[in-house]
Structures are given as structure tokens and as C-alpha cells.
């Protein structure tokens, strides 16, 4: 399996950040992982890195409930940036919410590839990345 170049993890839960980071590291699945604790930090970074393909992610794991800028607002801002991005980005929403209104809302956004209810197990994470490579 080919490794993925860049992954963004956008989630405010530091325990979860730690878990994903360690899992990815132990399998050598991703060359570079960038972690953001809210949507604003991620979107600002993406905008600044837009002309630098190494820093633009191949995949984004996006939480919904975050302070400052939540996952929905991130997606709105991402749509505005998208025309300027010269790379295909796959976005997975990874959330603790089982509210069907959240699920339907996420699935209605064409940029969102899938909605995953936590926990995102090691096996699921590997298969997500595998489908991308």
C-alpha cells in the first residue's frame, strides 16, 4: 500500500489526537500528519499552504463539535477555498454524534466522502487510507 503524503486531523480532543497520531506512526501509513484543534486553525493553515502541494492534505479527518470554528463552518470555508486548490482532497467526518440530522447534513455535502461514528478503529482507519492510495 502506497503511503499517503499528508493527512490533516481536525479535532479538539487531545486524547483522540494522540491515538490517531500513534496509530498512523506505527503503521507508517502517512508521511506527514498535521493536527488542528479547531476548524479555524486548519482552514488558516490550508489557505496559507495553498500553493505548496506538500502541505495541502490528501485526506482530512474532520470532527464536527469544536470550539471557535466547528466542522460545519470549516466545510463552508473549505468550499470557498476549493477552486484554488490544485489537488484532490478526501474528507471524512469523524464524529461522536449519532443524530440522524447530523449524518444527513454531512452526506448532503458532496465534498464529504463519508460520515464515520467514533470510535474510528485502527482497522477502519487503515481501510480508509487504503481506499485512497
Amino acid at each position: 500500500m502506497k503511503a499517503i503524503d499528508t493527512l490533516y486531523l481536525v479535532d479538539d480532543d487531545d486524547t483522540y489526537q494522540f491515538i490517531v497520531e500513534r496509530t498512523l506512526a506505527s503503521f507508517d501509513l502517512v508521511k506527514s500528519i498535521k493536527i488542528f484543534s479547531n476548524g479555524k486553525l486548519a482552514i488558516d493553515f490550508l489557505e496559507a499552504a495553498i500553493d505548496n502541494p506538500d502541505q495541502v492534505p490528501d485526506i482530512i479527518l474532520l470532527d464536527l463539535t469544536m470550539p471557535v470554528m466547528d466542522g460545519w463552518q470549516f466545510l463552508e470555508n473549505y468550499l470557498l477555498l476549493k477552486p484554488r486548490i490544485g489537488k484532490k482532497i478526501t474528507i471524512y467526518v469523524v464524529s461522536s454524534s449519532i443524530d440522524p440530522t447530523d449524518m444527513e447534513r454531512a452526506k448532503a455535502i458532496s465534498e464529504v466522502t463519508d460520515y464515520i461514528v467514533k470510535p474510528l478503529s485502527k482497522e477502519k482507519l487503515i481501510s480508509l487510507l487504503g481506499s485512497l492510495a
Binding site: 486524547t15 483522540y16 491515538i19 470510535p119 474510528l120
Partner: peptide, 9 residues
Amino acid sequence: RAPLSNLLL
């Protein structure tokens, strides 16, 4: 679910 799934992982 949030802390629980962290514990599971």
C-alpha cells in the same frame, strides 16, 4: 461516546 471511544481505542 467521545471519552468512551477513546478508552476503547
